[in-house]
Write a protein that binds this DNA or RNA. Structure first.
Lengths: 363, 363
DNA sequence: GTGAAAGCGCTAACAG
DNA sequence: CTGTTAGCGCTTTCAC
C-alpha cells in the first residue's frame, strides 16, 4: 500500500528536480499528509513508529515545510523586520546598528527566525513606506525599532498598521509600546563619568551632544547637566552637533579656540564623535589626556583600537539586541500588545581607559 | 451592483480589523478578483476605467498583495538571503559587512526586495545549515556570499540546493558561480601603495596579512610580494595574523621588536588591523609616520577618524554591494545560472592621507 | 473585456 | 490512531 499514486505531486511535472512537498514525504512514508504535518509540528495522535517513518522520509527527501506555505496558512512569517532610516555611509561609520543586529540575531537564529532588513535613506516618507510595505505585504511578524525620536510618529503608524513593535531604548513619552532598555539606573554611566572627571580635578567640562531630535540625546545631555550640578559645577559649554565625525571635529575646534573658555575635559554623545574629537584635539596640538580628557559613549570596538584608548560609557548593545528579540517573542506569544516585563540589561557603566587623566591646571 | 455579497471575505469573521484581501478590493471595485489581479500586475485585458476603479479601491483599503500568497503561488519571494559566518563582535569591529549591505540594499529597496540576514556563529555546520534552511523553506530567491575562502564548499552546496548565488569578490578557482568584483586591475591599489612607499624612500616594508584561508587575503599578499619584487625589493617580513585588533597589535610588537630587522613601513590586510597596528606602534614609542609608515585596506570610515588619518587602499564597497544585487537580479531574470557580465566597479586605488611619510633612515 | 475555478504547500477541523 | 477535506490569498488558464 501507499507508495506511489498516480496523482502524487511528483507526477505533476516531469522535472525530478522540483522541491519535495509534504505530499512526497507522506507518500514515501506511506501515510497521509496530515500525519506528516502532525509529526513535524509535534502534535499528538501519531504512533512512535509512524513518527519515525515520517522523519526518515523527510530526511531522505531533504524536506522542510515551506516557509511561505506555512505563513500563508495564517501562522507566523518567522521573520522580524527592521528599518534603518539612515544613509549608507552614516550607518557604516556608526557600528551601533551592527552590534545591535548581532544581538537580535543571536536570539532569532535559534528560533529559526530571520531578520528582514530595510535600509532606506533619510528622505521624508521612506521610512514610513517601508513599514507600510512590511505590514501590508505581511512579510514580517513584527518590527524592532531603534533611536526613539522626539515626537516619534512611528508608534502611531505601527499601531495603526497593527504591526507588533519593540523599541530599543527609551521611548518618547511612555507610548504604549514595548520597549527594551538597560535595567537599573539609566543615568549611571554618565554620573560615573562626571564623578571620575571631578575626582581627577576637572572643573571645566564640556559636552558635545548629538542632534536633539533623539530622545536619548536629550536624556544624556540632561543627565550630564544634572550630575555636574550635584557637584556644584556648571557645564563649561554644551555644543549641539551632528552625529558625524566632521561635526565632532568642528565642535572640538570651537571648544578649544578660546583659551579662557577652554574645557579640560569633554564628554561626547557617542564613541565615533569622541574618537574624531580626540583626533581633532591632537591635530590642534593638544595632547590627550594631558591637555584634554575625552570620554565617549557606547563602547564600540573602535574605542580600543585607537591611541590613546578611549575612556567610554559602555552599554551592552548585544545584550540589548537580545532583549529586544526576546521581548518581540513575548509580544507575539501573548497574542499581542501587552508589554512584556522590562528585561534586565546591565545599566551603562564607565570604562576607564587611557583618554582621561588629571586636569592640567586648576580652575 | 456589486458592493456586498454575503460571501464576501469581509463577512468571514466579525473583526473588521482584519487585513483586506484581494476579494475585498474586488468587491469594493465591483469586479472579480481576477480582474484585480490583472490590474495590479499590469496584465492586458482590462479597460482603463475598470483599472482606475480597482486602483482606487486598493488605495482606499490600503491593500497590497500579500507577499506570502504571491510567493506561494510560485512567483518570487522578493527576498535575498545573506549569511554571515562570523561572531557578533568580529562583525561589529569590521564594518566591511555593513557597508556592503548598505550597497546591496540600495539596489534591493527600489525593487521592493528585502534582505534576509542570518548571522550565525563560527561553529562548523552553522553556515551550511543556514543556507539549507533558506533553500528548503524557500525563504529567499537567492543568496549573496562574501569572503570567498580557499576550498570554499559553499558553491557546491548552493548548486546542489539550486539556490541562485552571487559572490562578492574573487572566487576560489573559477567556480561556475556569478561573482562581482572590482573592474580593471584588481591589484592596482597595492601596486600604487608599494610605489608610493618606494618613492618615499622606504626599502624595508613589511606586510601583515590576515588568515590565509581567505582568497582575497592570499591574493593581496601575493600582489604585495610581486609589486615589491618589481622594484628589486623583498618584503622585510610578512606576518600572518588574525583579522582582530589584538592580533594586529601582536604582529606590530613582533615587527618592531628587533632593531636590525625593523621595517620602516607596514601594509595591513585591512583598516581595522592598520588602525590597531598604528596605535600599537605609537604605544611602543614609534611615531607615525615619522618612524613608521602605515597603510590599510578598504577605506572604512574609521581611517578618517583617527590621528594621523590612515593612508589606505580604497575599494568602493557600496558600489560592490550594488553590483552584487544587480547581478542577482540578472541571474533571477535570466532563468538562472548563466553568469551576468562582470559589472564595472572602480578598481581599488591608493588614498594618501597622513599615516605615510618619508623613510627615516636609508637602508 | 471579464469572471469562475483550479490549485501553490500547508494546517486544522472533522470523520472514520 | 489516522485520513479527508476545506481553505489561507493569490495568479492563471479557460470559458463566457
Amino acid at each position: 500500500m501507499a507508495t506511489q499514486q498516480s496523482t502524487s505531486p511528483r507526477t505533476r511535472r516531469g522535472s525530478r528536480t522540483d522541491k519535495p512537498t509534504i505530499a512526497d514525504v507522506a507518500a514515501l512514508a506511506g501515510v497521509s499528509v496530515s500525519a506528516v504535518s502532525k509529526v513535524v509540528n509535534n502534535r499528538p495522535g501519531i504512533s512512535p513508529p509512524t513518527r519515525q517513518r515520517v522523519w526518515d522520509a523527510a530526511e531522505k527527501l531533504r524536506w522542510s515545510p515551506s516557509a511561505t506555505a506555512v505563513a500563508l496558512r495564517g501562522a507566523r512569517t518567522r521573520a522580524i523586520g527592521m528599518v534603518a532610516g539612515r544613509s549608507a555611509d552614516v550607518l557604516a561609520a556608526d557600528p551601533h546598528f551592527s552590534v545591535l543586529i548581532s544581538g537580535i540575531e543571536a536570539e532569532l537564529a535559534p528560533a529559526d527566525y530571520g531578520l528582514l532588513l530595510h535600509i532606506v535613506g533619510e528622505e521624508p516618507g521612506a521610512e514610513e513606506r517601508a513599514y507600510r510595505r512590511l505590514a501590508e505585504e505581511r512579510r514580517v511578524d513584527g518590527v524592532i525599532l531603534t533611536e526613539s525620536r522626539i515626537g516619534d510618529s512611528r508608534f502611531e503608524l505601527l499601531r495603526q498598521l497593527r504591526l507588533p513593535a519593540v523599541l530599543v531604548g527609551t521611548p518618547w513619552r511612555e507610548d504604549p509600546i514595548v520597549s527594551v532598555r538597560a535595567g537599573g539606573e539609566q543615568d549611571a554611566g554618565i554620573r560615573e563619568a562626571v564623578h571620575h572627571l571631578a575626582e581627577l580635578g576637572h572643573r571645566h567640562i564640556a559636552y558635545v551632544s548629538g542632534p536633539e531630535d533623539r530622545v536619548h540625546t536629550v536624556f544624556r545631555r540632561r543627565v550630564f547637566e544634572a550630575a555636574l550640578g550635584e557637584r556644584g559645577l556648571r557645564p563649561t559649554r554644551i555644543v549641539i552637533s551632528e552625529f558625524t565625525a566632521d561635526a565632532a571635529v568642528k565642535a572640538v575646534r570651537r571648544l578649544l579656540a578660546e583659551p579662557d573658555r577652554r574645557p579640560t575635559a569633554v564628554l561626547f554623545a557617542n564613541d565615533t564623535m569622541a574618537v574624531a574629537g580626540m583626533s581633532a584635539a591632537r591635530r590642534l596640538g593638544f595632547d590627550v589626556p594631558r591637555d584634554l580628557s575625552v570620554i565617549g559613549y557606547d563602547d564600540l570596538p573602535v574605542g580600543e583600537l585607537v591611541y590613546p584608548r578611549l575612556t567610554t560609557i559602555g552599554q551592552d548593545l548585544v545584550q540589548l539586541g537580545r532583549a529586544a528579540a526576546t521581548a518581540m517573542f513575548g509580544l507575539l506569544d501573548s497574542g499581542r500588545s501587552e508589554p512584556v516585563e522590562p528585561t534586565a540589561v546591565r545599566p551603562p557603566g564607565l570604562l576607564v581607559r587611557e583618554s582621561t587623566g588629571p586636569a592640567a591646571r586648576g580652575a
